[in-house]
Amino acid sequence: MIGYLLFAVTFGLLLLGIHRKAIARIQRRPGPPVWQEILHMLKFSFKSTWIPATASDTLFVGVVLVAIGIWSAALFVLLAGGSILIIFGIYMLHKIVEHGFGLSSGSPYGKFGGVRSVISAASEIPLFVSVAVVALYTQSLDISSIIQYQNVHGPLLFIVPLAAVAMYLVILSKMPFGPFSIVESKELVSGYKTEHFGVWRAGLQVSNGLKTYVLLFLFITVFMGGIPLWWTLAGMVVLTLSLSFVCALSPMLSPFDSVTVQMVITGIMVVYAAVLGVFA
């Protein structure tokens, strides 16, 4: 399991590296090598590190531990075929982690990143709707039952494509350089992670790798079913490349527009779920 955890971190960071490389190539830049994010993690871990004088010390450090902890828990729940509700909960709590990162430092940039992360919470509701739609069909929230269902009825991707789109948008809003990544936008330096430097940032990289791995893995598992690991990994790469195209070709929205667009998507998804609930 510890081996798998380390693999997930590395592969997740590799996916982020591929994401950066693909965006660069689409925008006709050379871009960094694909393993750049892994190098970042190592580089940050060698840097001299301390806790800023204005920071709330325990929270400043603790939130890094929590970030790694919750995503390793999410990975284990996913592998064990546990309840999708737990992963949904962890996804929501990642918001608290972002908020904690931003607030603990005392820096105004981090604080604005944290506040933006809270106001963009509307992006979580599409995930809930897609979970609800999936549960409507499979009559269960256990990932193992969802896989079972797909073994009988074929991939959910073709049964409820709109739910897949909703979850795709949720993953998109968590990808760096995307249209909805207002929490990390450049006028806030690095958003919520501005003040977490050195080892703390390396820890954040670890949790980011895990997060990317878990979210993409979850998408493949829920909408394609329990396919072999190699195929899943290939699917994750393809998914990352498609996300990179969206991120590279769309501008970052202003915070207000971003929240509005997410609310509209949420509204459409709720109507869709209601229609399915009535007719299914």
Binding site: I2, S45, S48, T49, W50, V66, I68, S72, A73, V199
Partner: peptide, 28 residues
């Protein structure tokens, strides 16, 4: 049981990672 081992990992892995990083980081 596997679940117990996973619980141990969830608690220990973050601390382990951060401690190792802090240990091998550059001098202050």
């Amino acid at each position: 049981p596997l679940a117990g081992y996973e619980a141990v990992l969830v608690v220990c892995f973050p601390i382990f990672v951060i401690c190792v990083f802090l240990w091998w980081m550059a001098r202050e």
